[in-house]
Design a binder for these strands. Structure first.
Lengths: 188, 188
DNA sequence: CTCGTATGTGGAGCCGGTTCCACTTACGAC
DNA sequence: GTCGTAAGTGGAACCGGCTCCACATACGAG
């Protein structure tokens, strides 16, 4: 099934798949015992095995949600087809925040994912950045948003909004802050 | 010395003071063993005593840095005296981020402090909000910044920038994001 | 087939956070 | 001064994250 990582020994690949399945189950459970020990146990492997494959919790979270993140990134294209580019970006920002705040364990992993420089964790980050870039340049060409703000910065801004809105269910705060960010992106 | 909390038993007040002194020492030490156990030990009290006084780590951090936070908030007045209100706010934002990123343990405690609703932890939050409000309304009166964005939102925006800039030493990112926030605060 | 080794594995153990509870003590009432 | 009790205390114990290392095993070379 999952075929992350090259050239794993057959048994190791088996174990990794079971870990990811267990993680997906654990994260989506309401009571959410997402302790790594519990996930390892549920996958029928030792903790060391989990750590070898996913050195940081963020790595496990990233891998678990990878396909959903891909879907989020891909949805930018849909929005661009229906809306003006600036409106598409604004709508996508809402989706981003909803996604991060909804998926169990995602918000805590966000900084590690967005700041990813090394390793495999960059995958999600690159997808998200590319999605933003597409909308941002389209809007810049339309003249509705500034052309001098890098997509990276916009991504980090959205990330910052997500982080500060995470504590307590401050969804309205997030909305207002996203509006503020977009206002800052308007050409003068 | 410190006289937080009303009507503590004499010995309890003693202990609380010693905890705060130990915490201040621990946080300012380079190698920084800021484990609560270590701080309690250094203060010569049991962990339970520390927890009774400061139920969350954030409470301890807030109390330890209280006077410095007061100074930060007060510095807004100085800036207002020297600069145009919008420039003062922008300069103060830099101070805020530098402060939060510099003080050991502060960044992690930030969400808890800014989101503080109950308890005594609100003290720092209120001071910071008031400082922002002063600069923001002055700028609004001068017509250089919007009047329809609440000081709370600006505070949260600065907080978000701080959080996302915390991982890795991304001081330049913070600068760019703060510029973006201020751009969003400009009247159209 | 067999065998050496790179690859992979489990769990014990350490660390920091946090809770709980049996014990101690300050201090106001008398 | 003495005493009852509310307030305060210490540390054992539990939990989750994370590391380390002695042991197991897939699998390609021969």
């Amino acid at each position: 099934m999952t075929n992350t990582g090259r050239s794993l020994r057959a048994d190791a690949q088996e174990n990794q798949d079971r870990i990811l399945e267990a993680a997906a189950r654990a994260f989506s459970r309401p009571g959410a015992d997402t302790s790594l020990k519990a996930i390892a146990k549920e996958a029928g492997v030792g903790i060391a095995t989990l750590y070898r494959r996913f050195p940081a919790r963020e790595d496990l979270v990233e891998a678990t949600y990878r396909s959903e993140t891909e879907r989020l990134a891909a949805s930018a294209a849909d929005l661009l087809a229906e809306l003006a580019p600036d409106a598409a970006l604004r709508a996508w920002m809402d989706r981003f925040v909803d996604y991060m705040l909804t998926k169990n364990g995602m918000a805590e992993a966000l900084p590690g994912i967005l700041a990813a420089r090394e390793g495999l964790r960059t995958h999600s980050r690159d997808l998200l950045r590319a999605a933003i870039e597409r909308m941002l340049t389209a809007a810049a060409e339309a003249g509705t948003l500034r052309a001098d703000v890098p997509a990276d910065d916009v991504m980090m801004a959205i990330g910052g909004v997500t982080l500060i809105s995470d504590h307590e269910d401050q969804r309205e705060l997030a909305t207002r802050l996203l509006d503020l960010v977009v206002a800052g992106l308007r050409p003068r």
